[in-house]
Design a protein around this nucleic acid. Structure first.
Length: 572
RNA sequence: CGGGGUGUAGCGCAGCCUGGUUAGCGCGCGUGCCUUGGGAGCACGAGGCCGCCGGUUCGAAUCCGGCCACCCCGACCA
């Protein structure tokens, strides 16, 4: 490809609306352009890279025995009503009506469609296991799309679904996908970690997320510093030692705390550590209000509460509800004297020796409270978000927090969808049995963004060779000389005939412009054809990552490039 | 949806507070000269519904009201 013919409009300045590096660089390198919030066009360079990610995913899925299919974007509401998700999916599901007034939606994921397909076509255990996947545009009407391709509304996704006859088979399918995901992300040159995750509204029994490690990630990963335990923040369990404190003598005493409502303010006002305060959160669920007690310096983990109570709605109560439940105003709630609420307490509060709590009365707190004696709790449990330094649930190690970008998510679904939609088969005894499902997603466009987050420098993108839009760029420099241009063309043609996709910067630009663009594009190898090297019968090979330049003869060029690709890949 | 911010040439921005003839700057773009190993220089030039609608005024990019879009923080989210 001649660069003079390529639509690759580069920018010297960062676009004003881009926040993260991958977004800035993809726009500057002329890979993508925004159409509207969270919706992007791919220009030739961006699309080439996207296709390379797709191809890696495709190869690994095929190697793992999955078969590629292609399903509709527009889906009828009937299927979603059958699975129950028409009601629960929320506004992320973009719904509309067709000309006949039939309710439709744009597919944010394809459990319903695939389950419908498979239940119609598969009758016998002989047809199982079956693993089907597709690579397709998904639409999710995110509340707040941001960060370019990182969280778009329309994005490219690989979604795969397995159907097994037995539980063991389903677990084997899950394991195969997990292995395939490891290979896929490694081939994409990503530093990642598989972490335990909550399975969320999609349901099911267990799940892993594949997180690319990056400071700009939107997710928090909790990992143990001594064993291989890793989980996302929603899921991360916390080990708690049994409390062994003696009961406190004395009784709670009221203190006046005028206008002091937050944990920090109370701590400051009374001169105590926030760890000595028990905060009482009043929340509303579809089954009524609840109270959750947490140590002052801890944060609520809503997922843990939802899972414990098996509720789907959970939100902070408003002042009216707080008044109703506690008898006092917002900011002074405490566990003594609550009316008709389930009280959940995080394990950590029993370790507080002498606690401060709200008195359920304006401008008043109680001190000298014994959490083991002075109030009633319905259930103790692990209800808080993990923090740096907590104990690992599996070993004696310590938990650490880091940031990550979720590029893949695998679920074991069990019979959630096969049951709701009656996807069954006849087992060897002729008995009708529900299929056991798994589902497996990769954010293909997000992989591309994540790869750039991890691989860039001040000059631009540093694509790992497997994702680069072109593997090499031939850059003739020096005076307009037929010798140089002919030599450049020869090098270029030689690269292509050896299977290396190369770009040829045939523009009449000054060398600096060409070098800057080549760096910005992130093309792994630049071959400079110029007077100096040509005088020795050589060309210059520059490695985008190591920044090393070697003089090589045109005959050796291809083999040197291949060697350098191999050593680059060896790092993955 | 709550809070904050921004909409002026393809991109990045100034001008607005304190209304006043022809709306500027840098980059990019076109033509010519010149230059050619890290985003050169000079000259000339094209390009604007100043987000949209309404109001105030002799006069609005500028003041007022409404709307829309985009961005950030939060809530939310396979």
């Amino acid at each position: 490809m001649k660069l003079s013919k390529l639509l690759a409009p580069t920018l010297k300045e960062d676009p004003a609306d881009a926040e993260v590096i991958s977004h800035k660089l993809m726009v500057r390198a002329g890979m993508i352009r925004k159409l509207t919030a969270g919706i992007y066009s791919y220009l030739p360079l961006g699309y080439r890279s996207l296709r390379k990610v797709e191809q890696i995913v495709r190869e690994e899925m095929n190697a793992a025995g999955a078969q590629e299919v292609f399903m509709p974007v527009v889906q009828p509401s009937e299927l979603w009503k059958e699975s129950g998700r028409w009601e629960i999916y929320g506004k992320e599901l973009l719904r509309f009506k067709d000309r006949h007034d039939r309710e439709c939606c744009l597919g944010p994921t394809h459990e319903e469609v695939i389950t419908d397909l498979v239940r119609r076509e598969v009758r016998s255990y002989r047809d199982l296991p079956l693993n089907l996947y597709q690579i397709q545009t998904k639409f999710r009407d995110e509340i707040r799309p941001r960060f370019g391709l990182m969280r778009g509304r329309e994005f490219m996704m690989k979604d795969g679904y397995s159907f097994d006859a037995t539980e063991e088979g389903a677990e084997e399918s899950y394991r195969q996908m997990r292995d395939a995901y490891e290979k896929t992300f490694r081939r994409c040159g990503l530093k990642f970690r598989a972490v335990e995750a909550d399975s969320g509204p999609i349901g099911g029994s267990f799940s892993h997320e594949f997180m690319v490690l990056a400071a700009t990630g939107e997710d928090t990963i909790v990992s143990c510093d001594s064993c291989d335990y890793a989980a996302n923040l929603e899921k991360a369990e916390i080990r708690c030692l049994p409390a062994s404190l003696p009961a406190l003598s004395g009784t709670p005493e009221k203190v006046k705390t005028p206008g002091v409502t937050t944990v920090d303010d109370v701590a400051k006002f009374l001169g105590v550590n926030p760890r000595a305060i028990i905060k009482t959160l009043i929340l509303r669920t579809e089954n009524g209000p609840i109270a959750v007690l947490l140590r002052g310096d801890h944060e609520l983990n809503e997922v843990k509460i939802k899972n414990f109570l098996n509720v789907s709605e959970l939100e902070m109560a408003n002042a009216n509800l707080i008044q109703e439940v506690t008898g006092g105003p917002l900011g002074f709630s405490g566990p003594i004297g609550l009316r008709n609420v389930v009280v959940l307490a995080d394990n950590a509060i029993v370790e507080i020796e002498s606690a401060v709590i709200g008195a359920n009365e304006a401008d008043t707190h109680l001190v000298n409270v014994d959490p083991r004696n002075h109030f009633q709790v319905n259930n103790f449990g692990d209800f808080r978000a993990a923090t740096e330094g907590d104990m690992c649930p599996h070993c004696s190690g310590t938990l650490r927090l880091s940031r990550g970008i979720e590029v893949g998510h695998i679920f074991k679904l069990g019979d959630k969808y096969s049951k709701a939609m009656n996807a069954s088969f006849l087992d060897p005894e002729g008995k009708e049995t529900l299929m056991i499902m798994g589902c497996y997603g990769i954010g293909v466009s997000r992989v591309l963004a994540a790869a750039i987050e991890q691989n860039h420098d001040d000059d631009g993108i540093i694509f790992p060779p497997p994702l680069a839009p072109f593997t090499a760029i031939v850059t003739p420099v020096g005076a307009k000389s037929d010798t140089i241009n002919e030599a450049a063309q020869k090098v270029y043609e030689n690269l292509w005939s050896s299977g290396i996709d190369a770009l040829w910067d045939d523009r009449d630009e000054r060398p600096g412009v060409k070098f800057k663009d080549a760096d910005l594009f992130g093309i792994p190898f630049r071959i400079t054809v110029g007077q100096k090297a040509l005088a020795q019968g050589k060309v210059e090979l520059r490695n985008r990552k190591t920044k090393e330049t070697n003089l090589v003869s045109p005959d050796e060029l291809v083999s040197v490039v291949k060697t350098q690709i191999d050593s680059w890949l060896a790092e993955f």
